[in-house]
Simulated scan of single mutants.
Amino acid sequence: MTLDTRVHAVPPITTTPLFDIAVDLEPPLKFGPGPLGRRTLYPASRGTFHGPRLRGEVLPGGGDWALYRADGTMSLDVRLTLRTHDDHLIHMTYGGRWVIPPDVRADLADTATRHHIDPARYYFRTTPLFETGSPKYGWLNDIVCVGSGYLIENGIAYHVAQLT
């Protein structure tokens, strides 16, 4: 096969830390099995985020409308409202995948201890996007991010980085 001459070298994708976010979750609402898999809502009750350029709180009312596929992988569909420390609102959405190997699933079933499981034992990645009307934080409207997730006591956390 010959190389397509239209393909060019481009600078490598790099990342810059944006923030770390911790989200407390309410008990899940299980919709049961549907045509695409098992749908479960994990309501967000509150949380915090901190980074070099912004910080604040996660407001109640968002959540993850997760879909568990037949193979056990969770597809994320998350919507959160962030309020910055200086009172600007930011809409954060992200999809992603949480792939849990079969040998880790039993350990994750124990809600009292699952946050102690090493995140290296599973794959939990997201693709956050933002929307805001704030002139101060309008730069968020034009960036793409990636996140690496892990469990914490009473919820989830992510390290979010901007693709540069």
Rank of each mutant, 00 (worst) to 15 (best):
P119F: 04
V146R: 05
S75C: 12
T40L: 11
V23I: 15
I152Y: 03
L89E: 09
T113H: 13
F124N: 14
G96V: 06
A161P: 00
M1Y: 01
P102C: 09
V144R: 07
H85E: 14
L89P: 02
G62K: 03
P135H: 08
L76Y: 03
V10Y: 10
H8G: 04
V160G: 00
T127Y: 01
V144E: 09
W98R: 09
K136G: 01
E26H: 00
Y122K: 04
E26L: 06
F49C: 08
P135N: 09
H85S: 06
H159P: 00
R6G: 12
I100V: 15
H116C: 08
L76K: 03
Y68A: 07
Y158P: 02
A22W: 04
R55Q: 15
R69S: 10
L89I: 10
L151H: 09
L25I: 08
S148Y: 07
G32P: 11
L82C: 04
L76F: 09
D87H: 06
R125D: 03
T113R: 13
P27M: 11
I152H: 04
P60G: 07
H159T: 13
H116Y: 11
T126F: 01
R6P: 01
W65A: 04
K136T: 15
P28Q: 11
L80A: 05
F49P: 02
T15N: 06
T113E: 12
V78C: 08
T126R: 01
L129V: 15
E26N: 00
H115T: 12
P102I: 07
Y137S: 08
D86L: 01
G155H: 02
T111N: 03
A9N: 06
V58K: 01
Y123F: 15
W139P: 04
G32Q: 14
Q162F: 02
D64V: 08
A66N: 11
K30Q: 08
V146G: 04
M74V: 15
